[in-house]
């Protein structure tokens, strides 16, 4: 792998440009779906059907004055947005959106991605903590409380398919349902874990009904209350990319992700589409189909998240802790047991 190729990987695809572009598209989609659910139209006049709206927002924020409160810790205040963006961005590089394997994939990259996806929450907590305003502090403590609520169910839910596939590598988990013919039905088996993962992801993204740390009517802007200008822009971009990475991760581990490429002919299937075309397509066409398949699955996950956001009221911090330990965690344990049982019987 030469240096130019690596640079291309990091900067263009599946790196920075692709991640930013696709995640702003997802934000637009999210806003549109949300607006349509509320009988509104959402952004309309920024580009085609307002598709450039998130980009306009970010460009505008980048061009604005950047205020740092006098009481805040200057360095930490500036460092947190960059840290969280770097973390999600790196996590995105491990996703197999490029090829059957991402260019830097290795056995155990699932753990790394999960770990990297936790960093934004900590960064957000510290960002709120260092900006020293009552709302930021309150928001920051809520970020952390919420983290303890959703993180364990999320891990457990994501580990279920890993155990099923017998691997800690995202790409192997992703191709597992397609590698052995007739095994696509492991997807419905993981339904409970999928639901738990979606809910936990929503909590990770801090969106309704789990937008407790940023509850506008309670703590104003939460940890981001004091942020403005460029730093806010970075946080927004980070949130978008987090949504993309999270949704793509769920799409990979639960929905078969990229699917298997026609490698030598017998492992021929690419996601759901692959079941139909996989046997006949190879090379570039198969690759494109795989990419489209994965992106469609990611979009589907985001669509689910948007619907969930539109259909619920915000719950309280004590309610989310109770909810995730009383329901989400036992559900994921139950799912885990089902999978173990199936494995023990040799069914999969």
């Amino acid at each position: 792998m030469n240096a130019l190729k690596v640079a291309l990987y990091i900067l263009v695809y599946p790196g920075f440009l692709f991640q930013s572009g696709f995640s702003t598209f997802l934000e637009w989609l999210d806003r549109k779906v949300y607006a349509r659910m509320q009988n509104r139209r959402g952004p309309m006049y920024t580009g085609w059907a307002g598709i450039l709206q998130p980009i306009a927002d970010i460009v505008k924020l980048l061009s604005k004055e950047d205020i740092v409160p006098a009481a805040a810790d200057q360095r930490a205040f500036a460092f947190m947005p960059i840290l969280s963006l770097a973390a999600v961005f790196t996590a995105g590089l491990y996703l197999p959106v490029w090829h059957l394997r991402s260019f830097n994939s290795f056995e155990g990259d699932l753990i790394v991605v999960l770990y990297l996806l936790t960093i934004p929450s900590f960064a957000l907590f510290l960002a709120g903590w260092f900006s020293v305003s009552p709302y930021s502090l309150l928001g920051a403590t809520r970020v952390l409380t919420q983290l303890f609520a959703y993180e364990v169910p999320f891990f457990m839910a994501v580990l279920t398919p890993a155990v099923l596939a017998g691997s800690w590598q995202i790409s192997k988990i992703a191709i597992f349902p397609w590698t052995v013919a007739g095994h696509w039905w492991v997807i419905p088996i993981e339904l409970i874990a999928f639901v738990v993962a979606i809910l936990a992801l929503q909590a990770k993204l801090e969106r309704v009904p789990f937008d407790i740390p940023e509850a506008e009517t309670e703590v104003v802007g939460g940890p981001l209350t004091e942020y403005s200008g460029k730093k806010l822009a970075i946080f927004r971009l980070q949130k978008d990319i987090l949504m993309y990475v999270g949704a793509a991760l769920v799409a990979c581990v639960f929905l078969g992700g990229f699917g298997a490429l026609p490698q030598g002919g017998d492992q021929a299937s690419i996601g759901v589409l692959g079941l139909v075309f996989g046997g006949y397509l190879g090379g570039v066409a198969g690759l494109l189909l795989g990419v489209v398949g994965l992106l469609l699955k990611t979009t589907l996950v985001v669509f689910l998240l948007s619907t969930l956001r539109a259909a619920c009221a915000r719950i309280r911090i004590d309610q989310i802790v109770r909810f995730s330990w009383r329901y989400l965690a036992p559900w994921s344990v139950a799912q885990f047991l089902i999978v173990l049982l199936l494995k023990a019987k040799g069914a999969v």
Partner: peptide
């Protein structure tokens, strides 16, 4: 801002804190 007029069509969003507002 509501469905009947929907200012979000023009990209207008209601923000909670002065730091975010234009």
């Amino acid at each position: 801002l509501m469905p009947h007029y929907d200012l979000e069509r023009f990209g207008v969003q209601l923000k909670a804190t002065p730091r975010h507002a234009d």
